[in-house]
């Protein structure tokens, strides 16, 4: 048990840095992240610009902070929709069983038959590359996994003796669902939501890197990396800092997620 302590502390610290930067970046950044200043383009990190400037002279630190806000918003909203959709559909499928279950799960499995990155790409080709399109596409790509977990948890809880005991006490099915089944499904949902937050962040960055995310000039870590690529030989910092941000945020989420998972369900280790 002691071993997970550093996980939680390091993970928590990284995660709070990330969330803190995102929050601050919403209201204040050292410079205007969008303002062009061609006189000071491609400046190395220094006193004026701590993390340097990009090819249009924009302050890298300011852009990173603004991008953190965008990424957190997209990821949180996406995970929120995935949880909402996943719990609703999962409960309906697991609770109704029979044909409702079969139809919901057949559609769900078909969505799961696409790798989530590909599904997001496909949906983006329909919705178009903008903030709402990305949330819609990522939400649809990630909901099926949540549906599956919630349904599985509902189905396995249904067989538990305390659920049968609730039936024997004369409780209605709806009461049993809300009082006994849902609270006990919470663990797996939280565990999956945490790791999903990381996956969504990663996929969103990858899409941005491919040029299919939030369109420039609005900064995201992904599109900052993409535009840094041609200048990377002379301006290394442009390539290093956004990637470091993504990696450290993901590391924080992963470590924190491991700690949460060990707390809720030691059997899910390593998935």
């Amino acid at each position: 048990m002691k071993r997970h302590q550093p996980n939680r502390i390091i993970g928590g610290a990284l995660l709070s840095c990330f969330l803190g930067a995102a929050l601050v970046g919403r209201f204040w950044t050292p410079y205007d992240p969008m303002r062009l200043d061609l006189r000071s383009k491609l400046q190395a990190p220094g006193a004026a610009h701590w993390l340097g400037t990009d090819e249009f002279g924009r302050d890298v630190l300011s852009r990173l902070m603004a991008a953190a806000g965008t990424s957190v918003s997209i990821s949180l909203i996406t995970v929120f929709f995935a949880v909402l959709g996943g719990v609703t559909l999962g409960v309906i499928a697991g609770y109704a069983r029979g044909w409702t279950d079969r139809i919901v799960m057949a559609l769900n499995d078909a969505l799961l038959a696409f790798p989530s990155m590909l599904l997001a790409l496909a949906l983006l080709s329909v919705t178009g590359a903008n903030m709402y399109g990305i949330i819609l596409a990522l939400g649809m790509a990630y909901t099926p996994a949540m549906v599956r977990v919630v349904r599985g948890s509902v189905l396995s809880l249904r067989e538990r003796e305390f659920i049968e005991a609730s039936r024997l006490m004369g409780n209605s099915a709806a009461y049993t669902m809300f009082r006994h089944i849902l609270p006990n499904s919470l663990g797996p949902v939280i565990v999956l939501a945490t790791s999903m937050f990381g996956s969504v962040l990663l996929t969103e960055s990858a899409l941005s890197f491919l040029g299919l995310g939030v369109p420039p000039p609005a900064p995201t870590w992904g599109n900052m990396l993409a535009s840094a690529r041609p200048h990377i030989a002379e301006a290394m910092w442009l390539g290093i800092f956004p990637g470091l941000c993504i990696s450290l945020s993901l590391l924080g989420i992963n470590l924190f997620g491991d700690a949460i998972r060990d707390r809720f369900d030691p059997r899910m280790r390593g998935l």
């Binding site: 003796e161 005991a165 024997l168 609270p183």
Partner: peptide
């Protein structure tokens, strides 16, 4: 009413 076998599984945790 019923009393079940498994004292771990029959009470809502």
């Amino acid at each position: 009413q019923m009393i079940f076998q498994d004292p771990f599984g029959s009470l809502d945790p």
